[in-house]
Amino acid sequence: MNDHNTISVGIGELYATRDPSAVLAAYGLGSCVGVSVFDPVARVGGLAHIMLPSSKDATQQTSGYKFADIAIPALLQRLLELGSMPRSLVCKIAGGAQILMAPDHMNSFRIGERNIEAVMNALQQYNIVPKAMDTGGSHGRTLRLLMGTGQVLVRTVGGDITEL
């Protein structure tokens, strides 16, 4: 794969662009969720790498796009600013795995599942239902959004690449 124009969207970050040569990538999603949104008409797309369900869970005020309830509205706002139409947005998501299966580790209890729930709820506020998802399980994933075509590719830890 040509990684020449790959833009890595790190944990807790989001990125939106009109650049058709860009590939937006969220690498090594574990319990995190990669949310890709593409407008095939306006050729605008974006990706958020979400870590936690809700900013209300924060024990103190923190900013940033790590929370689903902040990142999703911010991502959609960026896309609108770049000229997308809410009705033509195609959303695809991957991630939200349960990496730790051991019951000893309560801080990460069901975090992947709760992240997916929160992403779905936040999207629903905008009447968006993901067109494709590769979520859950217990393995890591890398999500790529190819801006030239709008294709979304997911690579799993085993190395297999599938198109969502």
Partner: peptide, 18 residues
């Protein structure tokens, strides 16, 4: 046994809460 990013999610989600 997983992608480095996935393994790091485990401590980082706890750190990111605060």
């Amino acid at each position: 046994v997983d992608m480095a990013g996935a393994a790091l999610d485990v401590p980082l989600i706890a750190v990111a809460m605060t």
